[in-house]
Nucleic acid binder design. Structure first.
Length: 632
DNA sequence: GGGTGTACATCTCAGATACA
DNA sequence: TGTATCTGAGATGTACACCC
């Protein structure tokens, strides 16, 4: 490593082969864990579709052929690269005759594109065309409290119209803002608080679930993003970092969990922590994976627990029959979610918080519900996680039976709307430790969720007949050891935490498997991401592994940049550019270079301006750094 | 046949600007 | 003041064409 010690290690383990909950370590936090991953209110942002020739599937297929093609060109593999490219082109058109968006330019054109694609693969960095966005999910700010308030005033608009009469258009905003400020100031502070709470609710309502594709992209870019951030922080603080992470695998969110260890040290040739620590494997890595295992498992259970409650289009929850495999914690989770949903329904109009304030409910039960709604053996409702086990079962069965016996839409249990003094604002409320804080489900998302679950169920019912044997083999491994190589984990031996089984079990057990990927280079998408982080890029120093592939493109970019700044100004007529562009298509050697944007800008400038305007300093493409990380 | 240079399209990001 | 839209800069993939 040239200037700094940087290392990213990525490995995975299968939840189906997790260590049992009562592991020999016995020192990890027992299930259920406190809420460590609060739901992030988010809003989707527009996604643009990349215009590339091949579909994703085709690109993947082609990418798999690059190593052999390049191997032949470099004489590492016997045979000619061109022959291989043409051979693969023939196979390609045998598989597909349509490209992206259903375009079918003809067999010969497709063949030529395949050959050219493989040829370009030698010089291009590879991967996807589009840069990976930063790990950022924009959040809508939503309406402000004072805005909501004045919108509710019937006379506000008329007053606004009266005040703006005779004023220039530009004054409209200030008039509106002034009037809003006046009305807001007139409002008592208690009422202001109510409107602030309503604005908070409105903001939340604007934010839906994170789109899966954004999650996937963010997860994919995470190692690079973290590495870049750590690198920058290291430069700016002199600190060294060793970071352990766990989370879903971007390739398969329901499959093996992914564990990352990221080390960044500003010193040259610093030893890696894993080699420095005398018992890294046993003392650090294994301990972390044991712990992280349960973090991920709990996270998935919290995600999936809502799948164990039927919620209709009105948001009314219905409990499913008890499953023998559920643990007490599982049942407590489900009941907590169930009550939170009931609470949400009861308080929807007056909502100032979305989950039950269990502490207050315990101290003032009469303000929250009718005691007669509970089974006679249960004196009071407390948090299911604090409930004795016999009460937990009793309550669950009671609620479940009430559902079955009552065909009407009446709920077996209903919360009262507490007075505002009892019902604190969410800002002042602290989540109770160990309590499931999954947000209640908004009716608007229920239809979508249920459709997804239904589809999943139908698929999985079908799969269960075909894969039952495989699954059984893995889960009943007698000696407790995973015999399959980690890299060969297939869908049949992965435990799907969601709805893979018509009678799903939340519990999952097993042992650790470590998946190593040997000498894997960084996907270009992640390189792009890091390049997008310009501050980091400027201070980064490449490690090894970047020379061969990067040099060709860097030279090209540099050459291109010089040409743009030196020659683009010559052309100040866009029409000429177009003509020359057309001419270029038939005859190579055209000397005007640069993007259309650059040309258009230059064309818009006068010749005098272009003569005296110094081109803006750019990051030289030659200096563009390639940042590779290595995987253990 | 393989390597290389180039134009162009298109992406992300950040800052500027317009608007209510 | 908050939000939406526009714009410029930088980066990268694709297609084409020429050179060795």
């Amino acid at each position: 490593m040239s200037a700094t010690t940087r290392k990213v290690v990525e490995f995975q383990w299968d939840l189906a082969v997790l260590p049992p909950q009562r592991s020999h370590h016995g020192d990890y936090v027992p299930f259920p864990l406190p809420l460590l991953f609060p739901s992030h209110p988010i809003q989707s942002f527009p996604l643009k579709i990349m215009k590339t020739c091949f579909t994703k599937e085709q690109e993947i297929w082609l990418r798999e052929r690059i190593p052999e093609y390049l191997g032949r060109i470099d004489h590492i593999i016997e045979g000619k690269g061109q022959d291989y490219a043409e051979e693969q082109a023939n196979i390609f058109v045998g598989k597909w005759t349509e490209l992206r968006d259903g375009k079918s330019p003809g067999i010969d054109v497709i063949k030529a594109k395949v050959v050219r694609w493989l040829k370009n693969s030698r010089t291009k960095v590879g991967g996807t065309k589009a840069a990976v966005p930063l790990l950022k999910i924009p959040e809508s700010r939503g309406p402000t409290a004072n805005q909501l308030y004045v919108e509710s005033l019937e006379d506000f608009d008329s007053e606004y119209q009266r005040r703006r009469e005779g004023l220039p258009t530009k004054a409209n905003v200030s008039v509106w803002n002034q009037l809003r400020a006046e009305r807001w100031q007139e409002l008592p502070s208690q009422d202001q608080k109510i409107w602030k709470d309503r604005a908070e609710v409105a903001r939340r309502e604007l934010r839906g679930p994170v789109p899966e594709d954004i999650l996937s992209r963010n997860r994919h870019a995470l190692p690079t993003s973290l590495q870049t951030v750590l690198s920058s922080y290291s430069k700016q603080t002199g600190y060294s970092f060793f970071l352990l992470c766990v989370g879903p695998n971007p390739q398969d969110p329901d499959g093996p969990a992914r564990v990352l260890t990221i080390q960044h040290c500003g010193l040259e040739s610093a030893p890696e922590f894993s080699s420095f620590h005398p018992a890294y494997e046993e003392g650090v890595k294994n301990v972390w994976t044991q712990y992280a295992c349960h973090l991920e498992e709990t996270r998935r259970q919290r995600e999936s627990v809502t799948d164990f409650i039927d919620i209709n289009a009105d948001g009314i929850p219905k409990l499913k029959p008890l499953c023998r495999e559920w643990t007490f914690a599982n049942i407590a989770d489900i009941l907590t979610t169930y009550f939170d949903q009931l609470w949400y329904i009861a308080n929807e109009k007056e909502i100032s918080q979305r989950t039950i304030p269990w502490e207050q409910l315990t101290t003032q039960p009469e303000s929250f519900y009718e005691v007669t709604d509970l089974p006679s053996a249960i004196p009071a409702l407390i948090s299911p996680h604090k409930m004795p086990h016999w009460q937990l079962f009793l309550l669950y069965e009671h609620l479940q039976k009430c559902q079955q016996s009552d065909s009407s839409a009446t709920l077996p249990f209903a919360f009262k709307v507490p007075s505002p003094s009892i019902n604190p604002s969410p800002k002042n409320r602290m989540p109770e430790p160990g309590v499931n804080c999954i947000s209640p489900i908004r009716p608007s998302v229920i239809a979508q969720k249920k459709a997804k679950i239904t589809l999943s169920l139908e698929d999985d019912r079908h799969q269960d007949y075909t894969e039952e044997g495989d699954r059984a083999i893995v889960e009943t491994d007698s000696d407790g050891e995973e015999e399959l190589p980690a890299s060969s984990v297939s869908p049949s031996n992965e435990l799907n935490m969601e709805m893979n089984n018509p009678t799903p079990s939340i519990s999952s057990v097993s042992k650790l498997t470590d998946l190593h990927t040997e000498n894997q280079v960084e996907p270009v998408a992640e390189v792009n991401l890091r390049r997008s982080l310009r501050h980091a890029k400027d201070t980064e120093t490449p490690t090894v592994g970047d020379i061969s592939m990067a040099s060709a493109n860097s030279r090209k970019r540099k050459a291109n940049q010089v040409d743009v700044t030196a020659e683009a100004n010559i052309n100040d007529n866009e029409n000429d550019i177009t003509e020359e562009h057309q001419a270029k298509k038939s005859k190579r050697g055209h000397k005007v270079k640069g993007s259309t944007q650059v040309k258009a800008k230059k064309a818009a400038q006068t010749s005098a301006e272009t003569a005296i305007t110094a081109p803006k300093a750019r990051n030289s493409a030659h200096n563009a750094q390639r940042y590779w990380y290595y995987v253990e």
